[in-house]
Simulated scan of single mutants.
Amino acid sequence: MSEHLLSNLKNVEARIEHACHAAGRPRESVTLLAVSKTKPASDVAMLASAGQKAFGENYLQEALQKIAELPELEWHFIGPIQSNKTRPIAENFAWVHSVDRLKIAERLSHQRPVAQGLLNILLEINVSGEESKSGFSLSEIAEIIPQVAALPNLVLRGFMAIPAASTDLEQQRIPLHRMQQLLLEMQQAFPELPLDTLSMGMSNDLEAAILEGATIVRIGTDLFGAREYKKKPE
Rank of each mutant, 00 (worst) to 15 (best):
E3G: 01
L5E: 01
N8R: 12
V12H: 03
E13C: 01
A14N: 05
I16R: 13
H18G: 04
H18E: 15
C20V: 06
H21K: 05
A22F: 01
R25N: 04
R25T: 04
R27W: 06
E28Q: 11
E28V: 14
E28F: 07
T31Y: 00
A34E: 10
S36C: 10
V44G: 02
A48C: 11
S49G: 15
K53T: 09
G56Y: 09
E57D: 13
Q61N: 13
L64N: 08
A68V: 02
L70M: 07
L73A: 02
L73N: 00
E74F: 08
F77Y: 14
F77R: 02
I81K: 01
Q82T: 11
S83P: 03
A90F: 04
A94N: 15
H97A: 09
D100K: 03
R101W: 10
I104Q: 06
A105N: 08
A105W: 08
E106I: 08
E106G: 08
H110R: 10
V114L: 14
A115L: 13
Q116P: 00
L118Y: 13
L118S: 15
N120C: 04
N120P: 01
E124F: 10
E124R: 03
S128H: 13
S128T: 13
S134P: 11
E140D: 12
I141M: 04
A142V: 02
I144K: 15
V148D: 12
A150G: 12
R157E: 02
A161L: 13
A161R: 07
P163Q: 14
T167S: 14
T167M: 07
D168Y: 10
Q171H: 11
I174V: 14
H177E: 12
E185H: 14
A189K: 15
A189F: 06
F190D: 14
P191Q: 14
E192G: 12
L193R: 06
P194G: 12
P194C: 06
D196A: 09
D196W: 00
G201Y: 02
G201F: 03
S203Q: 04
D205T: 04
G213P: 06
G213N: 02
G225Y: 10
